[in-house]
């Protein structure tokens, strides 16, 4: 009974993790502005990664590898947070007047 429950939980976590990964990649295409893409990419992919790692934690053979997976998760979180900030700052400096989609539409209509 219990391992059926655990199996179901693992499947649920893995599927939702993959769902958020797909969402993040979709966001990378859907948004037309670099900063929105950074936003989508970093947050959603990290959530997907977190869910996948939670599912993997329940399967790890030993405590050591479980702790290593957690360490990898936190390094990946810190890595993507800092790199997203760096790229956003680089983009931000070069586009002081960020093209606001609403304003662009007004220009087109007006």
């Amino acid at each position: 009974m219990i391992d059926g429950l655990i199996f179901g939980l693992q499947i649920l976590l893995l599927v939702s993790g993959c769902f958020f990964f797909a969402l993040g990649t979709l966001g990378l295409f859907r948004f037309n502005d670099t900063l929105c893409r950074i936003h989508a990419l970093t947050k959603i992919d990290n959530l997907g990664l977190g869910l996948v790692i939670l599912a993997l934690l329940t399967m790890t053979p030993s405590v050591a590898s479980g702790l290593k997976t957690l360490l990898i998760w936190w390094v990946a979180l810190a890595a993507s947070a800092t790199s997203a900030h760096l790229v956003a700052r680089a983009v931000r400096i070069h586009e002081p007047s960020l093209p606001d989609p609403l304003r662009e539409r007004e220009h087109k209509d007006g």
Binding site: T34, L41, D45, G48, S80, S83, A84, V87
Partner: peptide
């Protein structure tokens, strides 16, 4: 950004 995607 895509290379960040490869990261995660």
């Amino acid at each position: 950004l895509a290379s960040q995607l490869f990261g995660t």
